[in-house]
Design a protein around this nucleic acid. Structure first.
Length: 451
RNA sequence: GGAGGCGUGCGUGAGCGGUUGAAACGGAUGGUCUUGAAAACCAUUAUGCCCGCAAGGGCAUCGGAGGUUCGAAUCCUCCCGCCUCCGCCA
């Protein structure tokens, strides 16, 4: 296993940013354009001014420190009689240094504050647009099922087959929880096994990660930069731990403060974990059933790559998502997310929306089930994750890796999709062929027992 | 929850308050030698920031933050993390 240094509080986290300030200085126009593409109001001029103030203060402070150091050296070499004078001069210098350092601290505070608000730069091929209305449907894949009966909503199916119980979950845990039962519980693990099998074949390392993450890690990654971010997370006050909203939050920081050998890249993980979301601010939405719960399980892919490989890797992750969906014969469409609709760390994003024939009063609709993002070096900078080129000829300077993530299966929603797409007239549900081996050969879920 | 111990570079591991960015050994990389390899020998082996067209110069960093001092890896305070034993527990 990789050695992990005990540097969770490493100052690197606070010195690295989503974007490189040098890049911003040298490519101000580009950054400006990217902010416009995202529709983010941000005062670049203020940032550059703060940067200049900060650098001036650093330069001055470093100069004073240099003299201070020179004094110390001189004093050591001076005969005792000549020391007093120099010590006095050095003391004076120290007072000035304190003032300059305070100036630096203030300047950096302002500078850092602004830096942390900067989002990642959208890649060039990301479509323009402010919000989800400008997302682009790239393709629709798979045949939507045709029913010679009115398709039912998954809760109707699940209730009839005793597969989901939200009433008792409400009694025990409150709203937005559910018991997944009987064959549906088995189907969850079939799905997980199936995904592990397929992804392992493609070089992913299966992993079950911690679902609680330290505050400093979460902060370091920029997952709790804003109040909204914090609102969405569960936080255990007593232990200062966050529950992950997605396993990427605990898988990506696994390699914080580490340097990969280039030969180790790409490094791919398939992580199965429970995810926790407060769903603050979604009170009216999807209140029924388990489409949107506080707790669900998810198989997530996370990749670390060299910068030049990340776009290829992004397509690779999308291909895995589609492959899995096609294997289950679930109809879906691929959506390219526009610049204004992406999360702050994201430079490029595809979603998969799956066809749910029972939704929308039986007319069916697409709902988001997958999302894959290329965060380029945005998170890697904050997490201080680098790689070292293996070439002997090149100097061994290291660079930031690129980090990507993608949903293999959001288990809950995939189960729902199966219930709705595989439902039959008699109320039973067929088991997707690809999952049958993981269900002991079971082909149909019928009501076997009530609970 | 109780009791101890520990945190130095890629690793192991030295470090008296003053050429210690940091010994030594190991590892890695390059080279010499060799038909090839091994061995041996030589060399290289941090990161970030600031100034500079560059050459180069400077500053910082020995878990973190403060403090003492002309000067701190070395002294003081607080914090964090890790480990071991006991208790509890799937």
């Amino acid at each position: 296993m990789d050695k992990k240094k005990n540097t969770a509080c490493s100052k690197n986290i606070f010195l690295n940013f989503m974007l490189d300030i040098k890049f911003i200085r040298e490519n101000t126009e580009k950054v400006k354009a990217s902010l416009e593409r995202r529709g983010v109001g941000f005062d670049l001029a203020a940032l550059l001014a703060a940067d200049e103030k900060r650098r001036a203060a650093i330069t001055e402070g470093d100069g004073l420190r240099a003299r201070q150091n020179a004094f110390a050296e001189e004093i050591e070499r001076s005969p005792a009689g000549e020391r007093a004078e120099k010590i006095a001069a050095s003391r004076e210098l120290k007072a000035r240094l304190a003032a300059v350092d305070e100036e630096t601290r203030k300047a950096e505070e302002e500078f850092f504050g602004l830096m942390h608000q900067l989002p990642n730069i959208p890649l060039p091929d990301v479509p323009e647009g402010r919000d989800e209305r400008n997302n682009v449907v790239l393709r629709e894949v798979g045949d939507k099922p045709r029913f010679d009966f009115p398709p039912r909503d998954y809760m109707e199916i699940a209730t009839r087959l005793s597969l989901v119980d939200t009433e008792r979950a409400a009694k025990v845990s409150g709203s937005r929880f559910g018991y997944i039962k009987s064959e549906l519980a088995r189907l969850e693990f079939a799905l997980a096994q199936f995904a592990f099998d397929r992804l392992t074949q493609k070089g992913f390392i299966p992993i079950v990660p911690p679902v609680m993450v330290r505050e400093d890690m979460m902060a370091g990654m920029g997952y709790i930069d804003t109040n909204d971010d914090r609102e969405e997370r569960y936080f255990l006050e007593k232990d200062k731990l966050f529950l992950v909203g997605t396993s990427e939050q605990s898988v990506a920081p696994m390699h914080a403060d580490e340097t990969f050998d280039a030969g180790d890249l790409p490094r791919r993980y398939a992580a199965f974990s429970t995810c926790f979301r407060r769903e603050a601010g979604s009170y009216g939405k999807d209140t029924r059933g388990i489409l949107r719960s506080h707790q669900f399980d998810k198989m997530e892919m996370v990749s670390f790559t060299r910068p030049e490989d990340s776009q290829k890797e992004h397509e690779f992750l999308l291909a895995r998502e589609e492959e899995l969906m096609q294997a289950l014969r679930l109809p879906y469409r691929v959506v390219r997310i526009c610049a204004g609709d992406m999360a702050r760390p994201t430079a490029s994003q595809f979603d998969i929306e799956t066809w749910f024939p029972g939704q929308n009063n039986g007319k069916g609709e697409y709902r988001e089930t997958h999302s894959t993002s290329n965060t380029t070096d945005f998170q890697a900078r904050r997490l201080n994750i680098k790689y070292r080129p293996t070439s002997n000829l090149q100097p061994l300077t290291s660079h930031f890796v690129h980090i990507l993530n993608g949903t293999a299966f959001a288990v809950g929603r995939t189960l729902i999709a199966i219930l709705e797409n595989y439902q039959r007239a008699d109320g039973s549900v067929a088991v997707p062929e690809a999952l049958q081996p993981y269900m002991g050969g079971m082909r149909v879920i019928t009501k076997t027992r009530s609970a």
